[in-house]
Design a protein around this nucleic acid. Structure first.
Length: 220
DNA sequence: AACTTATTCAACCGCATAATG
DNA sequence: ACATTATGCGGTTGAATAAGT
């Protein structure tokens, strides 16, 4: 996914495409200090070369405290099916009944795991609801390809370490954000992330630890 | 091994509605 | 009451990657 840039002549181009760790850090840091909302203004004053919509989406779907990033559980699957049968594609309404899940995630789950067409190679196989359910569950149990790539080191640590969270990871994203202004991402990684891990491997835990120590209700 | 097809999911787009001046 | 701006929602896209041939 290449990052795109666009904008009117004479104005700085607005970034599009995947968010970088650096941008995430800036956004989390800014919101931790100033609260959320006024997204266009937030994007400007935080120094993020993104539009407000993009910032809001990134925050609500991935960075805000309480967002669950694991697989959909069989129980959640049942809730989704039940609520969808009742309300149809009212994803945000359904998401309100699944704490930590976002409308985007549920929408993607519905389309890819529940409502998808079977593969050609699976057309010979029985494809009733029970099979579809089992497939959804087993696939949910395995991590996605993207998280697989970045979680290996972290999973290894989780299996072997007795202390959680990793003491070297405990810190403040706000402090890191401040440090970022002074030094840049590599420097932040060097100061806030243990050397055994890559920045990407630790980022989510890093953010989670931050929210654990600073509930959102206290910071705004 | 090389190529094609299918799948996943983060992110964007357009529209509707709410809030504000 | 109307225009403008901000926010929220649902549909869709597209790059990365896994699976299949």
């Amino acid at each position: 996914m290449a990052t795109r840039m666009c904008g009117r002549a004479g104005e700085p181009a607005v970034r599009k495409g995947p968010w970088t760790l650096e941008e995430d850090l800036i956004l989390v840091s800014y919101i931790s200090q100033n609260g959320e909302g006024s997204w266009d203004n937030l994007a400007r004053t935080a120094g993020l070369n993104r539009n407000g919509k993009s910032c809001r989406l990134r925050w609500l779907n991935y960075l805000r405290p309480g967002v669950r990033r694991g697989s959909i559980t069989p129980e959640e699957d049942m809730v989704i099916r039940e609520l969808h049968s009742r309300w149809g594609n009212r994803w945000s309404k359904i998401a309100k009944h699944l704490p930590g899940r976002t409308d985007n995630e549920i929408k993607n789950y519905w389309r890819t795991k529940i409502h998808r067409k079977p593969r050609r190679s699976q057309l010979q196989e029985p494809c009733d609801d029970a099979v579809a359910m089992g497939m959804a569950t087993s696939e949910a149990a395995s991590t996605s390809s993207q998280s697989q790539a970045s979680s290996t080191v972290w999973d290894e640590y989780m299996q072997t370490s007795s202390s959680f969270p990793h003491p070297e990871l405990v810190g403040s994203v706000a402090a890191a954000g401040h440090h970022l202004e002074m030094a840049g991402l590599d420097e932040v990684a060097a100061h806030f992330v243990p050397t055994d891990f890559g920045f990407n491997d630790c980022f989510w835990n890093f953010v989670d630890n931050f929210w654990e120590t600073m509930p959102v209700s206290d910071m705004v």
